[in-house]
Design a protein around this nucleic acid. Sequence first.
DNA 1: GTAATTGCAAATACTTTGCCACGTA
DNA 2: TACGTGGCAAAGTATTTGCAATTAC
Lengths: 143, 143
Amino acid sequence: MSQIDSLLQQARDAGLRRTKALEALFTCLAEHNRPMTLAELTSCGHLSSRCDKATVFRLLQRLCGKGMVRRLGLHERAGYFTLLLPGIHRDYLICTDCGSIDPIDAPCPVHQLEDEIREKTGFTELYHELEFFGRCLKCSASS
Amino acid sequence: MSQIDSLLQQARDAGLRRTKALEALFTCLAEHNRPMTLAELTSCGHLSSRCDKATVFRLLQRLCGKGMVRRLGLHERAGYFTLLLPGIHRDYLICTDCGSIDPIDAPCPVHQLEDEIREKTGFTELYHELEFFGRCLKCSASS
DNA sequence: GTAATTGCAAATACTTTGCCACGTA
DNA sequence: TACGTGGCAAAGTATTTGCAATTAC
């Protein structure tokens, strides 16, 4: 079963209907494999001229509610959305100049602290977001 | 020398003029000691009815440029601004329900990874942002 | 005096909602 | 058929800019 099918199944189990828009959204997010803004998503080939911005927005909202998508801050004015894959956690390296976003493959060093915080504060549904910001080689060179 | 004076001095050294607005902004940020939105800042006693939103916005912009203030994402629609104090790094614990923001006092476990990334990728001016999100005890209880 | 800074108002960017038509189950 | 979903358009919220008046140096 492809990743898209698996996601659609998961969405269906969560009570969502299988629609073209949902399929296109999953395809787009899975293909890019990085957080994307609403604007990026709606101008992506799979979605553009097929789905309205409002539709995509509401899909993302529903998926966030079902825990299948997460909304990230990432410093920009626009919000970023990313697929939440079971067992997978990603941190990002972001160039403050050109805006490139790359996942970091090193193991995330924060999980232990997360456990400590969970115990100490009693917070539930705890998760974290870790981003590194800086200027990439290219941007550093060009100024 | 008070913290405000020290900040004003630093700003002056960076080429900014000493104005009422700047003084009020520093006072407000230092007093609250946590990231604040533009809206919060302009409705804060020190600034409200004295400074226009645009003024505060532009001050924050300049201070970001001088490395004295940092803009954070924090998941909300609005951006958050925080003083960047030399030698001090803060991570935050945020309740996704009531929106409370608390600094975490545990030592940040990310610096080593940050060094590795700096070496491996050649990124300059690298820094990171780490936030924990969840529901606080109170909010967990009330639903 | 000169240039940075400010306030007001308007423009822009992004998000969110209302409403009715449509498609899925 | 019934209700979740979609498209369009409009409203809402936050940010950003233009410009003339003001203020710090």
